[in-house]
Design a protein around this nucleic acid. Structure first.
Lengths: 140, 140
DNA sequence: ATCGAAATGTTATGTTATTACATACGAGTT
DNA sequence: AACTCGTATGTAATAACATAACATTTCGAT
């Protein structure tokens, strides 16, 4: 449930390129936007992006934001097999900025629910929508 | 944040048809599946479904499951403007069954996070994936 | 060197969702 | 009835997101 990822493995060229793009963007990016950004590096088809994304998600390097069909580099350092638990995301519908957060109490409650209902949880998505502090104050 | 919905209003024909389908299905249904089921009633285009879905979500009668692009009738009664808080969903990846749950502790933690970060939350999506009790026991 | 697994490249297609614009319907008014 | 305003509908086209199927290449282990 805590979705630990596999030990650090060397990434392939495509995976590194995609991860690099996501790390330098400081906001979520869609698969097709990544494709466009990587055309200069030889990317030509959606699958090249989706395959890299799948792997990077599995390794825990990036997150998929299900409610906006976009991907973000994980906010936590990934030096040597970091493991962190359930991640939550607060997505600003005005400016697109996303904050990643972790809350062990939430994780705990989800585990409790799963346990008492016999549900074997493997992954989770927790996404808030609204307005970030900056946007909320500029558009009251 | 608790996403209360508007007072009960009479639904239009299209909205009633879509809601009816979702209530009789006891599992999530995609927009295009709804379209196919409603062709006998005269539905011909995706927009007819999407417009009804948008309204039903806004009224709180149904939920969108962001991680599977499907919709479900709200598990709670909707007699006269019921209001319930943040809903969570446990989605079985084996059989497709979904359990809706509410957890005030989780809601509280999300509100805390929003408050301390100045985030004005308007809606939330909490979705677990894994195996339901039945599937977990039959495929250990 | 050669074998097999994993990664990649390529084309086509499937699935989900929206834009843009035209038309119809219902309530309130004159 | 005719008028108008707001909401709901109908329709066509297209945009955006994602995968299937299959051929080819790469690369480590033998």
């Amino acid at each position: 449930m805590a979705s630990p990822h596999k030990a650090e493995e060397t990434l392939t060229r495509n995976q590194s390129l995609v991860l690099g793009q996501l790390q330098s963007a400081h906001a979520p990016v869609t698969a097709y936007a990544l494709l466009d950004k990587l055309r200069p590096q030889g990317f030509r088809a959606p699958l090249q992006v989706y395959r890299a994304l799948d792997r990077l998600v599995a390794l825990g390097h990036i997150h998929k934001l299900e409610s906006i069909n976009a991907f973000m580099a994980c906010a936590h350092a990934h030096g040597q097999g970091c493991q962190h638990g359930v991640a939550g995301f607060a997505i600003c519908d005005s400016c697109g900025q996303v904050s990643e957060f972790a809350d062990s109490a939430i994780e705990h409650r989800l585990e409790e629910w799963a346990k008492s209902n016999g549900f074997r949880a493997e992954k989770s998505a927790i996404e808030l929508h609204g307005q970030c502090a900056a946007c909320a104050s500029s558009a009251p």
